[in-house]
Simulated assay, not measured.
Amino acid sequence: MTELTKKSGRSVMSLALEACRGSVDDAGMNLSEVDGVISYGFNNDSVSSQAVATALGLPAPRYLVTTEMGGQAPCFLIMQAAAAIEAGLADNVLVYRALNGRSGQRVGTAKVPGTGPMMRYPAGLVAYPQIIAMWARRYLIETGRDESDLAAVVSAQRLWAVDNERAMRRTLMSEQDYARSPMVADPFRAADCTTEADGACAILVTSRRRALDLRHDPVVIEGAAYGTGKRSGLDAGDAMLWPDLTRNYTTHIAEQLWSSAGMGPRDVDMAQLYDCFSSSVLLALEGLGLAERGEAGRLVSSGATVPGGRLPVNTGGGLLAEGYLHGMNTVYEAVSQLQGSAGKRTVPDARSCVVTSGALTDGSALVLTRETRN
């Protein structure tokens, strides 16, 4: 993972190459062994996997995929890499995300795709904070909860960010500090919104057999799922057709995810949950069965998710505090934790983690475990 900045002064290609080379070097593998590259971009804000494979000088790439996806992509593309390896289409696959998301094209201030001259959104919902805020308010109404649940998420993740040198927001946030944060789209304040960043992140996926010969204890993909419910739509505005704005895709994929892993919500030691906005954490905790309906806020407020808690959540500060690499750094944090390389914030004896990608109608998730070599 590269440094996260507000202005990198570098090309997206340069960031992608640094992350990819760093990933392969960290594993103790030679670049010549890499034969697959997968990536994703959003509104042409990145560089293609084929271009990166060329710039890396890969001798014989045979699996190159570039997708136009958003935050639902990271876990989904890790799944694709694993499937390609299982199918014999590649041996060692890099999955990366690179963008100048602060100094270049910014997701948070960009017009939602599909909101052109056809007046698709006469109500004025043309930006992601506006759309997801509607989900957050509906959730609070239906569960009888209030903004203090959102504040609890923000405060808890700032506690983790203090010890994360990469994090762009490292100051603690009290309830009073939260209340002073400017309103963006009710009920979201600025503190509830992700921190846009310039940077890149890469994950190397390989076979278990090869992983056992590399530098670190392997992190095993124990289970995985991607899915959506009915009427997920073609763009973010179509998400308003979703029949229940108080539950997101995690509700629909939870059974498949836990079944594929042969585990349940109580079996994981931590969770790294996609948090483009604070409410996404609450919906994922409940959708995955980590908290009962309407109880996610109480779980976070109880201290269960902070350092020393029984279920650490977003241990790098999450996208809210660390920075927004479109969720790829959420997977990175999970791997770092399970390999024991997260520094002061490393969760002692953690051997399993659930990771999510996505906030609204479609998304993906992984269950990861650490395998210790004899």
Rank of each mutant, 00 (worst) to 15 (best):
89 L>R: 15
308 G>Q: 08
101 G>H: 08
249 Y>Q: 11
143 T>K: 07
220 V>Q: 12
102 R>S: 13
131 I>M: 12
319 L>C: 07
334 A>N: 05
328 M>T: 05
183 M>T: 14
30 N>Y: 04
28 G>Y: 13
275 D>F: 00
360 L>P: 02
330 T>A: 10
28 G>R: 12
202 A>W: 00
181 S>H: 05
317 G>H: 03
364 S>Y: 07
351 R>L: 08
291 A>T: 02
226 Y>T: 13
310 R>E: 14
273 L>E: 01
171 T>Q: 09
200 A>V: 00
304 A>L: 06
300 V>K: 03
271 A>D: 01
66 T>P: 03
230 K>Q: 13
347 V>C: 03
361 T>K: 01
326 H>L: 07
320 L>N: 01
214 L>D: 07
348 P>Y: 11
71 G>C: 12
184 V>K: 10
162 V>E: 10
84 A>N: 05
115 T>D: 12
351 R>E: 12
51 A>H: 04
138 R>N: 12
168 M>V: 00
84 A>V: 05
53 A>V: 02
164 N>L: 06
315 T>Y: 01
265 P>N: 09
38 I>T: 07
80 Q>K: 15
359 A>Q: 11
175 E>V: 06
199 G>E: 06
88 G>V: 07
111 K>D: 11
210 R>F: 01
343 G>Q: 10
195 T>M: 11
64 L>W: 05
209 R>L: 05
202 A>N: 04
169 R>E: 12
76 F>N: 13
227 G>Y: 08
340 G>P: 07
366 L>D: 11
13 M>V: 10
94 L>D: 02
262 G>A: 07
75 C>Q: 09
47 V>Y: 03
212 L>T: 07
289 G>C: 07
78 I>T: 05
244 D>V: 01
